[in-house]
Amino acid sequence: MKLKIAHLYPDLLNLYGDIGNITTIRKRCEWRGIQTQVDSIYGNEKINFTDYDLVFLGGGSDREQLLVRDKLIAMKKEISAYVEDGGVLAAVCGGYQLLGSYYKLEKETIPGLEILNIQTEVGETRLISNVVLESEKFGTIVGFENHGGRTYINDHTPLGKVIYGNGNNGKDGFEGVLYKNVIATYLHGALLPKNPVLSDYIIKMMLEQRGLPSDLKPLDDTIEENAHKYVVDRFVNKN
């Protein structure tokens, strides 16, 4: 048994260390004796989404994102079917924006994949900050945001409530979206290494979706938890 991960366009969507998320899923599986395989998907390759247990979509520069968008739009139906069927998808930053209805820039509006009912508009400044979220499901989540877009998530469930930083749009106090087995967020850091609870949640979803037992062997997360706690203490508890 092998869990398969599709890393979409790692050559284009590779900003801000997001590769660390894949490294983390791989390692946390490896430490539990679960084999993984990561397929980097480039250029014009056709993807059979049903082959995969996790699809990862990172963020790129505006220019690179435009290049990617057309490739993804061509697979809109397949991605949508994968998500509606409970496929696990993690999207960060630009990847998050692409899942929505559109990204409105000053002069043009770029249509998205319409998997989430969210809309993004470009703002005047970039929102750049360390971030701490509070989530009922995962406890605190820490990361770093750096985005020009303001995203409005309508009735979607957010990933968490912002207790430090800006979040989706700097106004409504929410960050990210949780929808079926999709986790979409602006957070880099990379996100998963310092949030082992979130990492294990993704691995559990992957196993469940395959119909496999999803009780995960506990790991010693002292190093991760210390790094997590450092961010919470510094920005929220002001220690």
Partner: peptide, 9 residues
């Protein structure tokens, strides 16, 4: 740089 994400690159 306030962001240390680059460590993963």
């Amino acid at each position: 740089g306030n962001d240390v994400s680059w460590l993963w690159d």
